[in-house]
Simulated assay, not measured.
Amino acid sequence: MLFLIILLIIVCVALGLFVLIQNPKGGGLATGGGGSNMFGVQRTGDVLEKGTWVLLTLVVVLTLSITTIAKSGGSSTGEASKIQQHLDKTPAPSPIGSRTAPAPAPAATDTTKK
């Protein structure tokens, strides 16, 4: 599961870069800089757009698979069960309506300067 989370982070960073590089209708980062274009303006836009859709699909698939694995308890280590055991041991907070005796007030101290 850790591998999928790392892969998801990498895909998200790549998706952000693809979105930033794209040439929107008004111009963007793809128009700045040099005059040499490897694919040409139209083909570059097509490649970046298709890459964006592919990366977006990967983000959705990875997110759903991580969620499915986490819900089914597919953790390879016992850390999740240790955390659950610790949570089970902690006492539940008292209901709002039932109050216990208030804590004693702190002792008054001398605040006058000498």
Rank of each mutant, 00 (worst) to 15 (best):
T109D: 15
K113L: 11
S81R: 11
W53K: 15
T57A: 14
D110F: 05
T31W: 02
T44H: 02
K89A: 09
Q42L: 14
D88T: 10
T67E: 05
S75N: 11
K82W: 14
P95N: 05
L20S: 02
L17G: 07
V41D: 07
V47T: 01
G34V: 01
T100W: 08
P95T: 11
A103W: 06
Q84T: 13
L56P: 06
P91D: 09
T44D: 03
L87V: 04
Q85E: 14
C12G: 15
P95E: 03
V13G: 12
L56V: 13
I66S: 01
K113E: 12
T68S: 10
C12D: 13
E49H: 07
A103N: 01
S75L: 14
L29E: 05
V61Y: 07
L64C: 06
A14R: 01
L87A: 09
L64E: 00
D110T: 10
I21Y: 09
K71F: 12
G27M: 01
G28K: 00
P24S: 01
W53A: 15
G34S: 06
V13F: 15
L62W: 07
G35T: 13
T63Q: 03
W53G: 14
G97R: 12
K82E: 13
A101N: 12
L48H: 07
T44G: 03
V61W: 03
V47W: 15
Q22K: 00
V13N: 09
T111G: 07
L8F: 08
A14W: 06
P24Y: 04
S65P: 12
A107I: 12
V54P: 01
H86T: 10
S36K: 06
L17K: 01
W53P: 00
K50H: 12
T63V: 05
H86I: 11
S36I: 14
A105V: 11
V61D: 01
K89M: 10
T109S: 15
K114A: 00
P106N: 05
L62E: 06
Q22S: 03
T109H: 14
K113N: 06
S36T: 08
G35I: 10
C12Y: 02
G32R: 12
G74D: 00
T100Y: 00
T68A: 15
C12K: 13
P24I: 02
A108M: 04
V61I: 15
L29M: 11
S65T: 15
R99I: 11
D46T: 12
G33Q: 04
V54W: 09
L29K: 06
L48K: 04
Q22V: 09
L48S: 07
Q84H: 09
I83Y: 15
P95C: 06
K71R: 13
G33L: 04
V54R: 08
V41K: 14
F39H: 00
T52Q: 00
T44L: 07
F39C: 06
A108F: 10
I96H: 08
I96Y: 12
G74Y: 04
G40N: 10
L55I: 09
T68D: 10
P24K: 02
T57M: 01
